[in-house]
C-alpha cells in the first residue's frame, strides 16, 4: 500500500481484532463464572489473550508507522478516534458522578424526610440522620459502618499536587520532543511516569488506611460506595495512563517519535490530562465539598 500524501492507506486483513474479541469473551465470561465459584483460570487466560493481542496489535501499528505507511489523513483519523474515545470515557465517569450528585442532592435528604418524603423518614427510617458524608446508615445491618470520613487536605491534597505536576512534566516532555531535545523528552516522561505511580501508590496507601482504620469500605453504605467507585475507577485510569506513558518512555528511549510524527505520545498525554481533570472533579466533589 502506498503512503503518498492525498492517497489513502488501507491496512491488510488482520487477525488481531478477532483475537481481541476472543480475549474479551474469555475474560468477562471467566470473570462471571468466577463470581459464581468457578476457578479464575478462564479469566486469567482471557487477560493473557488480551495482553497478547495488545502487543500484537500495537506492535503492528508501530511497525507500520515506523515504516512511514501513515500519512496525514491516517494521523488525523487516529486523532479523531482518540478524542472521541476520551469523550466516551468522560461520559462513563459522568454516570458515577451523576450517581454521587443524585445521592447527595436527592436520595439521602429524602431518606431524611426532605421534600415530598416526610413519610419515608417518619415511617421507614425514623432514626436516620441525613448528613453527608454518611456515617450512619438507614439500616446498617449487613453493612460496615465507617467511623470517619476521608481527610481532604492531607494525602488527597498531596495527590492533587502530584497529579497536577505530572501534567506539567508531560507537557515539558512534549516541548522537548518538539524542539528535538531527546533528553528533555525522556526526562519529562520519566518524571511523569514516576509521579503517576507515586500517585497510585499513595492512593493504595489511603485505601488501606480507610479499610483498616476507618472501616470505610465499598460496603459502608452509599458514602463508601461512591467514594471507592469513583476513586477506584479513576485510579484504574491513572494506572492505564501511566502504563501508556511507560510504553512511550521506552519507545522514546529506542528513538521513536519525531517532532512531526508522534501521535502515540500525544494520545497518551491527552489521556493523562483527561485523568488529571477528572481528579480535580473528584477532589472537589468527593473529598472537599
Amino acid at each position: 500500500m502506498s503512503a503518498k500524501e492525498g492517497d489513502y492507506y488501507l491496512p491488510e486483513p488482520s487477525g488481531w481484532p478477532l483475537v481481541g474479541s476472543v480475549g474479551l469473551f474469555t475474560t468477562l465470561g471467566g470473570f462471571a463464572s468466577y463470581l459464581h465459584g468457578a476457578s479464575p483460570m478462564f479469566m486469567m487466560l482471557g487477560i493473557g489473550i488480551l495482553i497478547y493481542m495488545m502487543f500484537g496489535w500495537f506492535g503492528t501499528v508501530i511497525h507500520e508507522n515506523q515504516h512511514g505507511l501513515y500519512n496525514k489523513q491516517v494521523d488525523k483519523s487516529f486523532r479523531w478516534g482518540m478524542v472521541w474515545f476520551i469523550f466516551s470515557e468522560v461520559l462513563f465517569f459522568s454516570a458515577f458522578f451523576g450517581a454521587l450528585f443524585y445521592v447527595r442532592m436527592f436520595a439521602v435528604p429524602w431518606l431524611g424526610g426532605a421534600d415530598n418524603n416526610v413519610y419515608t423518614h417518619s415511617i421507614l427510617w425514623p432514626e436516620f440522620n441525613a448528613v453527608w458524608p454518611l456515617l450512619t446508615l438507614p439500616n446498617s445491618e449487613g453493612f460496615d459502618v465507617a467511623s470517619g470520613v476521608m481527610d481532604t487536605w492531607g494525602l488527597p491534597f498531596v495527590n492533587t499536587i502530584i497529579l497536577l505536576s505530572s501534567g506539567a512534566t508531560v507537557t515539558w516532555a512534549h516541548w522537548g520532543l518538539l524542539k528535538g531535545n531527546r533528553n528533555q523528552l525522556t526526562m519529562g516522561l520519566f518524571l511523569t511516569v514516576a509521579l503517576g505511580f507515586t500517585f497510585v501508590g499513595l492512593q493504595a496507601y489511603e485505601y488501606v488506611h480507610a479499610y483498616h482504620e476507618l472501616n470505610l469500605k465499598l460496603s459502608s453504605g452509599i458514602y463508601g460506595s461512591t467514594f471507592f467507585m469513583l476513586t477506584g475507577f479513576h485510579g484504574m485510569h491513572v494506572t492505564i495512563g501511566a502504563i501508556m506513558l511507560t510504553v512511550m518512555l521506552f519507545r522514546s528511549m529506542k528513538g521513536h517519535f519525531t517532532a512531526e510524527h508522534h501521535f502515540a505520545f500525544e494520545a497518551a498525554s491527552w489521556y493523562w490530562h483527561f485523568v488529571d481533570v477528572v481528579w480535580l472533579g473528584l477532589f472537589i466533589f468527593v473529598y472537599w465539598l
Partner: peptide, 13 residues
C-alpha cells in the same frame, strides 16, 4: 386514576 410505584425504602404518597 391512581398508579403509584412502590419503591423499597421510600414512601410515595
Amino acid at each position: 386514576g391512581v398508579k403509584q410505584d412502590a419503591i423499597p425504602g421510600y414512601i410515595n404518597d
